Computed example of a mutant assay.
Amino acid sequence: MPTKPTVKPKRPWFSSGPTAKRPGWSLAGLPEGLLGRGIRAPEVVARFARGLELTREVLRPPEDHVLAYVPGSDTGAVEAAMWGMLGSRPVQLLAFENFGKTWAVDAKDHLKLEPEVLSAPWGRWPDTGAVDPKKDLVFPWNGTTSGVKAPNADFIAEDREGLVICDATSAAFAMHLPWDRLDVTTFSFQKALGGEAGIGVAVLSPRAVARLDEVEASRPVPKLLRLTEGGRFNRALATGTMINTFSVLTIEDWIDALEWAKGVGGLDELVRRTDANFAVLAEWVERSDWIDFLAEDPATRSTTSVCLKIVDPRVTALDDAGRQAFVWRMKGLLEEEGAAFDVESHRNAPAGLRIWCGCTVEAEDVAAATPWLDWAFGVAASTES
């Protein structure tokens, strides 16, 4: 039986969403003065506006881009862009993981479009040679469920005619994004900065705002996804006004996360911390013979939602259900010991592990978790021998 490690991560939170809270976070540290106030009260709107202001300061999009809150986390933000902007041009989608596939299904079955889907198997980035600058494009920058990210933005033309809608929920605040190639960039509070769930953000370029102003949606848009008022972009959304009632506690938690991000050094430091966490995990993967990256090309390996596949013959010989059961045995062992929580792959992805390495995680905790992963694998594998 493998020897059990003695040192555990101080913060064993490795879920890919909601992700770990910032170091030193405490619920008691959040302001309570506006709880119970009306969502349209000037003081409350001012706090939501402050959240957008801090988001801009940390994320650093161009000054001519506008930010707006959307209900439903990143999913709501992507859907708002798709429902409100697609239909006037042909549409392409990149589908190489669960959410990209979801956007493709929504475009075809719910928006009644005829999208061209550029797909790739789990672990691979699609062939983007067929991306057409005359068409609208929807894609995830970082595949949270596959551990595959865009290697660069070279496939997006600077002089494009179509809009680019980018689901960046597990890339924002952890990777530098090419704002000149993205027209709608979406993310949620609960990914890269460990915020609470339920609210998404859409960053809109002038081209995206112009689409909302000039092209009427070709379908009725539900109120929760409606970015327009009177046939134009609702400019009030860029000032902290909300589409519906949002949680005041959630926005206070978001402001807390952003203030921490500014305090530690801003976006460059967030990216550095993420890269350092990934480097620790990558070094362990390279020296371990039972585990490997799901992403085949090093240039497309996510540094946040790191997805891993078990390559030991005792596990690869199992059927899908057997491999899934093996992962859940490992998960149970790790969580019973309090060594690592929520490290299993997404339910729709190939059975394996997924370790969040974003900026709110500490490199020393990633290092402390790896011997426990070895131990859990050894214990689970001993029952397969």
Results as ranks from 00 to 15, higher is better:
residue 52 L to F: 10
residue 52 L to N: 09
residue 53 E to A: 15
residue 53 E to D: 15
residue 53 E to I: 14
residue 54 L to G: 09
residue 54 L to H: 11
residue 55 T to F: 15
residue 56 R to E: 12
residue 56 R to L: 10
residue 57 E to P: 03
residue 59 L to G: 03
residue 61 P to C: 08
residue 62 P to Q: 12
residue 62 P to A: 11
residue 63 E to G: 09
residue 65 H to V: 13
residue 66 V to R: 06
residue 71 P to E: 12
residue 73 S to G: 14
residue 73 S to Q: 09
residue 74 D to M: 11
residue 74 D to C: 14
residue 74 D to I: 13
residue 75 T to F: 05
residue 75 T to P: 00
residue 76 G to N: 06
residue 76 G to K: 03
residue 76 G to D: 08
residue 77 A to V: 11
residue 78 V to W: 07
residue 79 E to S: 13
residue 80 A to L: 12
residue 80 A to T: 14
residue 80 A to R: 09
residue 84 G to N: 14
residue 86 L to S: 03
residue 91 V to H: 02
residue 91 V to I: 03
residue 92 Q to E: 12
residue 92 Q to N: 04
residue 94 L to Y: 06
residue 97 E to R: 05
residue 97 E to Q: 10
residue 98 N to T: 15
residue 99 F to T: 15
residue 100 G to H: 03
residue 101 K to Y: 12
residue 101 K to E: 15
residue 101 K to Q: 15
residue 103 W to S: 06
residue 104 A to V: 00
residue 104 A to K: 00
residue 106 D to G: 06
residue 106 D to Y: 09
residue 107 A to E: 03
residue 107 A to D: 00
residue 109 D to N: 12
residue 110 H to L: 10
residue 110 H to R: 09
residue 111 L to K: 02
residue 111 L to V: 04
residue 111 L to E: 05
residue 113 L to I: 01
residue 113 L to T: 00
residue 115 P to Q: 02
residue 116 E to H: 01
residue 117 V to W: 01
residue 118 L to R: 02
residue 118 L to I: 05
residue 119 S to P: 02
residue 121 P to D: 12
residue 123 G to H: 12
residue 123 G to D: 12
residue 124 R to C: 14
residue 125 W to T: 01
residue 125 W to D: 04
residue 125 W to K: 00
residue 125 W to V: 05
residue 126 P to L: 03
residue 130 A to Q: 04
residue 130 A to N: 02
residue 131 V to P: 00
residue 131 V to S: 01
residue 132 D to C: 03
residue 132 D to M: 06
residue 133 P to Q: 06
residue 133 P to W: 05
residue 134 K to F: 11
residue 134 K to G: 14
residue 134 K to L: 11
residue 134 K to T: 14
residue 135 K to L: 09
residue 135 K to F: 07
residue 135 K to Q: 07
residue 137 L to Y: 04
residue 137 L to E: 07
residue 138 V to C: 04
residue 138 V to K: 00
residue 139 F to R: 02
residue 140 P to I: 15
residue 141 W to H: 14
residue 143 G to E: 12
residue 144 T to W: 13
residue 144 T to G: 14
residue 144 T to F: 10
residue 145 T to N: 15
residue 146 S to E: 14
residue 146 S to V: 11
residue 146 S to G: 11
residue 146 S to P: 05
residue 147 G to A: 06
residue 147 G to K: 07
residue 150 A to M: 12
residue 151 P to T: 10
residue 151 P to V: 09
residue 152 N to V: 08
residue 152 N to F: 05
residue 153 A to T: 06
residue 156 I to M: 07
residue 157 A to R: 02
residue 158 E to R: 12
